[in-house]
Design a protein around this nucleic acid. Sequence first.
DNA 1: TCTGGGGTCCTAGGACCC
DNA 2: TCTGGGGTCCTAGGACCC
Length: 415
Amino acid sequence: MQIPLLGLVDGNNFYASCERVFDPRVRGKPVIVLSNNDGCAIARSQEAKALGVRMGQPIHEVPNDIRKQCVIRSANFALYGDMSGRIVEVLRDLFPRVEVYSIDESFVSFEGVRDPIDLATEARRRILQWTGIPCCVGIGATKTLAKAGNKMAKGTPQGVVHVERAMLDAFSVEDVWGVGRKLTARLGAEGILTAGDLARADSETLRARYGVVLARTQMELNGQACADLEEVEPQRQELVVSRSFGREVTSLEDLSQAVATFAIRACEKLRARSLKANGVWLWLNTNPFKPGQPQYHPSRAFNLIRPTSDTREVLFVAQGLLKAMHKQGYAYKKAGVGLLDLVDSDVVQGDLFSPQDAPRASKSMEVMDSINQRFGRGTLGMASSGWKAKPAWGMRQENLSPAYTQRWDQLMRVR
DNA sequence: TCTGGGGTCCTAGGACCC
DNA sequence: TCTGGGGTCCTAGGACCC
C-alpha cells in the first residue's frame, strides 16, 4: 500500500502578516511584533528580518536607527487566534484530515489526492484570498520531512516544495525539526552538518549517544513515519498561566493580586476545556537579568483531595502557597499558577469525608463564565484579584492593534 | 529604563519496597 | 575488604517546540 503524503501548511511571518491584513499602511514596511510586556521580537516581516532583527531579540537591543524604520506592535493574540481559526476552516474544506499543530501551522494528509502539489497550491491561493495571510506548504512522507519542505518553500515563488532525498544534503541540520541549538553544536562536532548527514549516520550510535528522540527524527528523515496526524487534540496534562510583571513587585498584597488573577484565568481555561485539576502549583521569580539583586525562585505544588474546577478552591490553595513561600526583601518579576494532573470534568473521584457539593459549586462557576463570555472578560470577577483596578504589576502593551475581528467597538471603519 | 508564555518528552538519581 | 537485585514512583533538570 502506498503511504499517503503529509503536508505542513504554515503562515509566513504569521503575527506580522496578521497585523498587515487590517492595516494597509504597514504593508511593505518592516513590521516587528513583540512578546507580552513589549519585551522581545516574536515575529518579523521579511523586511524586518532583512534589517537584522533576530527572533527573540529583546527590543531594547535593536539599534535605535533600525527601530525607527520599523512598525512595532504589541502582541494581539486574540486577533492572531481568530485568524488562525479562519485558515483552519479553509484547510478542513480542502483536505481529508487536518491536525492543528500550533497557532500558525497545520499538518494535512494527502490521502486519496491525485496531485498533491496542485492541491497545496490551491490551498495557498485560497488562504491568501480568503484571509489575506500568505502561506507555504511542505510535502513529504513524514512530519519531519514535511516540516523540512515547508522551510525550503519559504522564499520560493511557488511556495510549495515536495521533499526529495537529495534535497536533504543542502538542508542544514539545525533547521531539522527536533534539532535545537545544543544538538546542532554536538552533531556539528562529529561532522554531522546537514539533514542528509543525520539521515545516514549510524543509528545505533545515534540512539546511544543522543537518545530516542533524535533516533526517531533520523527514522523520519529516512521516510519512516514515527508519528501520525493527531486530528483530535490530545488531552493536556497541565495548564499554566504565568506573566512577567510590567515592573518589579515587592509587596505581598500586589503579589497576591497577581497570583489571584492568574489562578482565576487558569480556572476559566480549565472549565472552557471541560477539565478538572488534581493539583495546584505556584512559582515566583525575581528578575534573572539583574544578577546583582538577591535572587529567589521558589516553587511549590499542592495535591487536592478531589479534582476541581472551582475558582474559589483554587484561589484558596494558591493564596496559601503564596503565603508559605513569600519572603520579604525580594523584588519579584514573574509569577505563574499551574493546574496539574488534569482529568475530564465528568470524572468524579468519590471521597469518604467531604460532602458532595460539586453540582452547586459548578453551577455558580457556569453562571460566571457565561456572563463574562457575553459581556466581556472581567465583567464578573473576584475581589482578591483587585478586580478592575489598574494593577501595579500589569503588563506593558504600548502598541496594541485593535481587536478587529472580536469586538464590535473595534471594527474597522470604512468611510 | 527595557529581556515572552505555554507546552511536551526524556533522563538521571534518590527513596522506598519486597 | 568485597555490598543483592529489581521494580516503581517522584522530582529536578535539560532539551526541544512554536
